[in-house]
């Protein structure tokens, strides 16, 4: 049935061009998401710990972790580290 469900998409595809940049950004985000998931696969971590594994600037990691949290991929454990950071884990791990 999926062909039926895409009929209006075909219509807009004819007149609206998608920028290559947007597609690239989307791919980039999917990569980051996977990297965060990988970093958390060994257990809950704080943002600085995730950043260290990913090798990305802290602020970018915070933004992406929080975004993944909003989308429901990860959640906070409720624990706080000694240096005042929350721990995050993959959702449904508990």
């Amino acid at each position: 049935m999926s062909w039926d469900k895409e009929k209006t998409l075909k219509y807009i595809k004819k007149k609206h061009k998608v920028s290559e940049e947007k597609v690239e950004e989307t791919r980039e985000f999917m990569k980051i998401r996977k990297a965060i998931a990988k970093a958390l696969s060994s257990g809950p971590k704080t943002i600085p710990q995730i950043a260290e594994i990913m090798g990305l600037p802290l602020a970018d990691v915070t933004y992406n972790v929080m975004t993944c949290r909003k989308y429901g991929y990860i959640e906070e454990t409720g624990e706080v580290s000694d240096d005042d950071y929350y721990y995050y884990e993959l959702k449904g791990r508990k």
């Binding site: 943002i47 600085p48 602020a59 915070t62 972790v65 929080m66 706080v80 950071y85 929350y86």
Partner: peptide, 12 residues
Amino acid sequence: YNAVVRPLDGKI
């Protein structure tokens, strides 16, 4: 953020 933390590093 479900918490008040710093936008830099998520620190309280």
